[in-house]
């Protein structure tokens, strides 16, 4: 095994981890406000399509990214209204968002490009090194500079999230909503408001994670291009034990598994690469089994909050 294989693998891991970070943070913000969201996959799909379409039309991947986030918010408002205001079962409604958003994304693509049209392609967001005109094969230069703005944003967001939840007043209140909404309400925290804000953040991040796939990762859009990343993100939140740092490590680890399985797939190894793809899911089931139900995430997660209840 030579060095380039290792460095390439590491670089690829970082690439694969970036969309996961966005999606996992989306899940984290949602769960921290007590909303378990299994519809991240769908939000990412619609974000991905929007990002693709907008950058195809405008030629600007950045605009695509922005509108992808906006679309994520819009679709997530359906989830928010149903689960927060109507108190619908969160998991069920997350699943519905998956069905709906995937159908919507596929539909918009069909309508715009027509059935069976030749594969449309877009330009990807440029990396910092290419913007600066630096070309180097040095591993560290590549790792640190040959990245799109979104990669820096992803890591910045992780840092921000860690600080927000641990050091700020607002972050503390936010967490209280997910842990014990009634107690939060008695302290004058606007529980419903925080939950809606959470849904906006979640929608935006999930939309961005999806848009990343079509503005920074692949030049084409195909249905199902999110490929389970929304669920891996859910896994990453559980595996990372609901903390920003943990989520980052989980995403890097899952990104590494993903990069490894792609390498295996290409090299034609006899070891089925799918076993590596299974790791996030099996790891999550294992983690859940080991930590037990009591410590599994914010205590108020999954339960509807009703104002006046006797």
């Amino acid at each position: 095994m030579d060095m380039t294989f290792v460095t390439n693998l590491l670089l690829a891991s970082v690439h694969m981890a970036t969309p996961l970070i966005f999606l996992a943070l989306a899940e984290l913000y949602s769960q921290r406000a007590g909303l378990v969201h299994i519809g991240i996959e769908g939000l990412a799909a619609i974000g991905s399509l929007t990002g693709f379409l907008v950058s195809y039309i405008s030629g600007s991947p950045m605009t695509g990214m922005f509108l992808g986030a906006l679309m994520g918010i819009l679709v997530n408002m359906i989830y928010a209204y149903a689960t927060i205001t109507l108190c619908a079962e969160q998991t069920v409604y997350g699943m519905i968002i998956n069905i709906f958003a995937l159908a919507l994304a596929s539909f918009i693509y069909r309508v715009y490009f027509g059935a069976g049209a030749s594969l449309a392609q877009v330009n990807l967001m440029s990396t910092l090194s290419s913007a600066l005109g630096i070309t180097s094969d040095n591993f560290f230069v590549e790792l640190l500079l040959d990245q799109t703005l979104m990669v820096y944003l992803a890591y910045g967001l992780v840092l921000f999230t860690a600080v927000y939840f641990n050091k700020t007043k607002s972050g503390l209140n936010y967490k209280a909503v997910g842990e014990y909404p009634k107690a939060a309400a008695t302290l004058g925290i606007n529980v419903i408001g925080v939950k809606y804000v959470a849904s906006i953040i979640c929608g935006a991040l999930a939309g961005m994670g999806g848009a990343y796939l079509t503005t920074c990762y692949s030049t084409t859009y195909v249905d199902g291009n999110v490929a389970g990343r929304g669920f891996i993100a859910l896994a990453a939140v559980i595996f990372g034990r609901w903390s920003a740092g943990g989520v980052l490590l989980a995403c890097l680890f899952f990104g590494f598994c993903d990069a490894l399985q792609i390498r295996l797939q290409i090299s034609g190894s006899s070891m089925p690469y799918q076993f590596f793809q299974m790791i996030p899911y099996i790891a999550t089931v294992a983690v859940l089994t080991l930590i037990g139900a009591k410590k599994a995430g914010p205590k108020g997660a999954g339960k509807p909050y009703r104002k006046e209840e006797r």
């Binding site: 503390l172 842990e179 014990y180």
Partner: peptide, 29 residues
């Protein structure tokens, strides 16, 4: 003070006391 305490179990005593505080300025604790 409710009969059933309204304490957030995942937090410290300090965090529980300052939770939802609106009297102090600033973003950070």
């Amino acid at each position: 003070v409710h009969q059933h305490f309204m304490l957030v179990e995942a937090m410290t005593v300090f965090e529980n006391i300052i939770l939802g505080d609106k009297n102090t300025k600033g973003i950070f604790i």
